[in-house]
Write a protein that binds this DNA or RNA. Structure first.
Lengths: 210, 210
DNA sequence: GTTTAAATTAAACGTTTGTTTAACTTTGCT
DNA sequence: AGCAAAGTTAAACAAACGTTTAATTTAAAC
């Protein structure tokens, strides 16, 4: 469990935003230093290098992700579909709440060359899958869920749909019907629309009910 | 309709691959020139700049995408669900066949700053939506499809699931069960798995049948 | 064959990059 | 107060960046 002081944390937060908006290579350490209002040398001093700073951003958010996953595994009184619905909502909330981080994840996961960060991403995805798999499988064995559903693909659909919706906002936002809606209202609107869609989708494919 | 000579084309193809694997800013014009076996100056000479080269990659692939969309609109004898299934398969084929390009699209669409390339991406997405929307809406009016389905979200699911599956291959590929499967076989395997999953998903949500 | 334009090259251009240095200030401890 | 460690700074570093230059070769046209 690593601890960051105030200055280190502000560097991490600024770097996260800039990496998300402009990409890792599209952001210079000078950009980061300026926006975080620290000297350039402080980045090397605290994090070692620009690469290690990216790693630090990941480790910082990963901790929250781990906690998130562990919280999901609780509440064992719920029925399978309730659990799935809860998982959908929580995941939507997490992604909309940590848009910058998930934006970086989506970019970095595309890199072909192996890197510590790429490994962390897939470690996290595997953990999420490892959480959802038993929920579905147990419900399949109990006869509640369709036995032929491909759980890995279903997770891909969950991640993929939300990931795809995030950049789509930037565009939708310019549409006439949303032009005078404030950011929070729009986020709430998107959250509901995503939630309704995904829950309907999962219910249909898993239980054959509507 | 722009024409490219052999040398220009090889630069475009090499740039596409490198941009996909390492990102735009992660790739230098020297990298591209070396792999394409041309002098560095030829890139400025032919394309004007690195940015314009990226634009050229896009225009080159966009032409094929436009053609693809126009082909989809044909075959008006099919039933709605057949049309949807055909659209799913064709889109999977397109994305698996142009992985490098779609990888770049996925990265570039995340950029916050407005750019010609970002505009092109959303132009294309809108065209795809404009194609699918009437198919679904007409079938909804005819009573064949569920009237409450969110078509925009469904498209997001289609794009998102396939997009998510593409980087996932790099990881899956390392799993024991696929380690001695050749690339083409693996691609075929993924294609089938994606196709089965998405068709089942769309059928369930649209027609309430299984 | 001469002329004109296009293609190609190695070298150099001025920036910007990530990182380090060395001097200086602040902090915490005894 | 005095000392050592941590924090902070402006400046300098070499390397890499995208782009341009000016010279040369190739190709096409007359």
């Amino acid at each position: 469990m690593e601890e960051y002081n105030e200055k280190q944390l502000s560097i991490i937060i600024v770097a996260e935003r800039l990496f998300a908006d402009q990409g890792f290579h599209g952001t210079s350490v000078r950009d980061i230093a300026q926006e975080a209002d620290v000297n350039i040398a402080m980045i090397s001093y605290y994090f070692g290098s620009k690469d290690k700073l990216l790693e630090s951003v990941f480790r910082y958010r990963m901790e929250a992700s781990r906690k998130f996953i562990n919280e999901l595994v609780q509440n064992d009184t719920m029925e399978p579909l309730e659990k799935i619905n809860s998982l959908i909502d929580r995941y939507i909330n997490k992604m909309l709440g940590e848009q910058h981080f998930h934006c970086i994840m989506n970019r970095e996961q595309l890199n072909k060359e192996k890197s510590p960060v790429r490994d962390l991403i897939w470690e996290l995805k595997r953990e999420m899958l490892g959480l959802m798999q038993p929920i579905v499988t147990r419900a399949q064995e109990a006869g509640t869920f369709d036995k032929e559903v491909d759980v890995v693909m279903l997770m891909t659909t969950l991640f993929g749909t939300i990931n795809q919706a995030i950049p789509a906002q930037y565009i939708l936002r310019n549409d006439i019907e949303f032009e005078n809606m404030n950011d929070d209202d729009f986020k709430e609107y998107l959250r509901n629309r995503l939630s309704t869609h995904l829950k309907k989708l999962f219910k249909a494919i898993l239980t054959h009910e509507f």
